[in-house]
Structure formats: structure tokens, C-alpha cells
């Protein structure tokens, strides 16, 4: 197994008195795509926010490239090469598409490289070039998602955190965006931590997966094997087998306690 680029160990994060993350550990090896699956409120977004420094963990450590980054301000974490594509896109609505992309490269000071990356991004998402002078707020949801991913890419990150890139998009667009994520990973060697509700898509492009339930990791495996598991099939992929199961099997067995 290649060296771990991101190492999260025993992290606990709170929203005020509410414990959202109940002691989670996982690793993301360099150059791979790792996905965290889970339903609404499982704590997926909180994990990403904890990693990128928006939220600070109460306990535990986050190591990026061997360096402790928990408790750091998000802009400093980002300068280390970790770009966060937030849930719900969060583009700058009153800036043009091009200005948004340039903001992605805010921390860089090599105009040649920036121009080159702008071309690269336009090659991945030609629609952004066509809309370069429009206000980002006037783009469609899918285009804004493309912009958010591109904007993160403009920083030439070593690793990207993607929070629900499929949110609110048509199946066709989701497919398109996941294909590009896979390409970015293969062509640019960008390590990806992908958080998704769309388990089917996520498991097909990722190498390794974790399943999160109410703040705990309840299952982890290589994605190819996860796809074969009955529980995953039933509860995340919606493949119905004969006979109705009332409760989740691993819950009944409580294998993680």
C-alpha cells in the first residue's frame, strides 16, 4: 500500500454540546481516490470540515503529508496543498467565472503556470470557457459544480476534498462530473477524498471506501469488495433481494461495538 497522504486518527468533533464525529480514524493513500459513504447527518461534511480546518477537533489528530494540521486556519491548510470543494458549491456569485478561477490560484504567484492551468481547466470543462465572463451566480447548478471543482484545481493541490459533488445534479451530469474526477486523479495524480450519498457512482470510481453511520465508521474495505456486500447493496445501492429485511443487518449484529 502506498504511503498515506492524509491520516486521521481518533478524531472527535462537536457542534457545541453535540458530538458529530465520535472518534474516527481513516487514511487516504497518495494518488488514490477514497470515498466516505453515509446518509444525511452521518457526519460526512463535518469530517471534511475538520480536515480542512474550518472546524477544530476536540480530540484526535489530522496529519497531512506527515504534518499535524488540526487546529490550523483553513487558509493555511489550503496552502499546504489540500483543496476543499465545499458542499453546495459556494462559488463567488458576483464575480465572473474567470475571476472565480483566478481566486482559486490566489496563493500562487507564477502567472505562466496559472495561465496554463486555466487552459487545462477549460479543457476539462469547455462550458466554463464559453461562460468565462458571466457572473458565477448566473450559472446552472451543474456548471457551478464544475466551476467549484475547477477553482479548487487551480491551486494545483496535492489532494482534493470533494463534498457531495453530485448534489442536486441530473444523473447524466453526475456521470460526467465523476468521469472528470477520475481523469483528474489519473492524469494529474491528485489524491481525492470523496464524500457522497450517491454510493453507486462513488464506489465505482473510488479505490477504497468507508461507511459512516451517526458519527462512526461501521465498515471499510476496497470498493470492489464493498460493492459485493449485501448490506451495501441493500441500503446504499437500493438493490432489493427477495424478502424484506426490517433493520440493517449490521445494526442488529452490532459488529462495531
Amino acid at each position: 500500500m502506498p504511503r498515506a497522504l492524509l491520516e486521521v486518527s481518533n478524531v472527535e468533533t462537536y457542534y457545541g454540546p453535540i458530538m458529530a464525529i465520535r472518534g474516527i480514524s481513516f487514511t487516504v493513500p497518495k494518488g488514490q481516490i477514497v470515498t466516505i459513504l453515509g446518509a444525511n447527518g452521518a457526519g460526512k461534511t463535518t469530517i471534511l470540515k475538520t480536515v480542512s480546518g474550518v472546524m477544530d477537533p476536540q480530540k484526535g489528530s489530522v496529519l497531512f503529508d506527515g504534518k499535524a494540521i488540526h487546529g490550523m486556519d483553513p487558509d493555511r491548510v489550503m496552502r499546504l496543498g489540500l483543496s476543499h470543494v465545499p458542499e453546495g458549491r459556494e462559488v463567488f456569485p458576483f464575480l465572473s467565472v474567470r475571476e472565480n478561477l483566478r481566486m482559486g490560484a490566489y496563493t500562487r504567484s507564477d502567472p505562466g503556470g496559472i495561465a496554463q492551468d486555466l487552459e487545462m481547466v477549460y479543457e476539462y470543462f469547455p462550458v466554463l470557457q464559453a461562460r468565462a465572463d458571466q457572473r458565477a451566480g448566473s450559472l446552472s447548478g451543474g456548471e457551478q459544480q464544475m466551476l467549484a471543482i475547477s477553482r479548487a484545481l487551480m491551486a494545483r493541490p496535492a489532494m482534493m476534498l470533494l463534498d457531495e459533488p453530485s448534489l442536486g445534479l441530473s444523473p447524466k451530469l453526475v456521470k460526467e462530473i465523476f468521469d472528470i474526477i477520475l481523469r483528474i486523479n489519473k492524469e494529474r495524480g491528485v489524491t481525492v477524498l470523496l464524500v457522497e450519498q450517491n454510493a453507486n457512482m462513488a464506489l465505482h470510481i473510488a479505490d477504497y471506501g468507508y461507511v459512516l453511520e451517526v458519527g462512526r465508521i461501521v465498515m471499510e474495505d476496497a470498493c470492489a469488495r464493498l460493492l459485493e456486500k449485501d448490506d451495501i447493496k441493500e441500503f446504499y445501492l437500493g438493490v432489493k433481494e427477495a424478502g424484506v429485511r426490517g433493520t440493517r443487518r449490521w445494526k442488529r449484529k452490532k459488529t462495531w461495538r
Partner: peptide
Amino acid sequence: QNQLAAYYMGI
């Protein structure tokens, strides 16, 4: 316009 996203951009 978007403080959180600005943080993510390293601003």
C-alpha cells in the same frame, strides 16, 4: 461574498 469559500481558496 462568500467568507467560507474564500478561506478554502487560501485567502
